[in-house]
């Protein structure tokens, strides 16, 4: 018993197996992010007003400079302009859009900071920084970022 079998022999094929990890999180939003999500459910976009007057979207709970509570929420958008974009040729199964699309940072009318979204567009040639876009709302909304199904270019404003 307990004799050394051998110094290591060739291990051969390394074993592997699928490993799936699920995080079933339910998160408490707090009043500011809660209001942003409430707005999405109601097809209203809101930002928070910072101490220097800038409107931050999605709303920040604290002033980015002073750290003080931000408490004033204002309506913005729903249209806005693209501040930067990236074209995804091969969407991932986890992405909202199945066909090639553009990630955009979109600065909503009345906002001073842009937010991230997915833009549905036929080709990358029609996408441009500065182009106007609007949200397409999901049919069923529950107060979730996915309540914005995606964004589209505002017609008549093609780049």
């Amino acid at each position: 018993m307990c004799d050394a079998v051998t110094d290591q022999t060739e291990v051969g094929e390394i074993l592997s197996a699928p490993l799936i990890i699920e995080y079933p999180f339910k998160r408490t939003t707090g009043p500011i992010i809660g209001a942003f999500l409430t707005g999405l459910r109601e097809q209203v976009l809101v930002g928070s007003k910072a101490e220097d007057g800038r409107v931050i979207v999605p709303p920040a709970e604290f002033d980015p400079v002073s750290g003080n509570d931000l408490t004033e929420l204002v309506e913005v958008g729903p249209e806005g302009v693209i501040t930067t974009w990236a074209w995804v040729t091969e969407p991932h199964a986890k992405h909202a859009l199945d066909d090639p699309f553009a990630w955009i940072l979109v600065k909503l009318d009345g906002a001073d900071t842009p937010m991230l979204g997915a833009l549905k567009a036929p080709t990358m040639d029609v996408v441009a920084t500065g182009a106007r876009v609007k949200p397409v709302w999901a049919d069923e909304r529950e107060g979730h970022i996915d309540d914005i199904a995606h964004w589209v270019l505002v017609e008549g404003d093609a780049a």
């Binding site: 592997s16 197996a17 699928p18 490993l19 799936i20 990890i21 699920e22 995080y23 079933p24 999180f25 339910k26 998160r27 408490t28 939003t29 009043p31 500011i32 809660g34 209001a35 999500l37 409430t38 707005g39 459910r41 109601e42 209203v44 809101v46 408490t71 004033e72 929420l73 204002v74 309506e75 107060g143 979730h144």
Partner: peptide, 26 residues
């Protein structure tokens, strides 16, 4: 919190489900 008028009288969202799955080959 000061809400815009459009959200003053609706039921506020207090929580959100954000499930996520990551697939690995161990």
């Amino acid at each position: 919190i000061q809400l815009p008028a459009s959200l003053a009288d609706v039921e506020p969202v207090r929580s959100v489900r954000t499930p996520a799955q990551l697939d690995y080959t161990f």
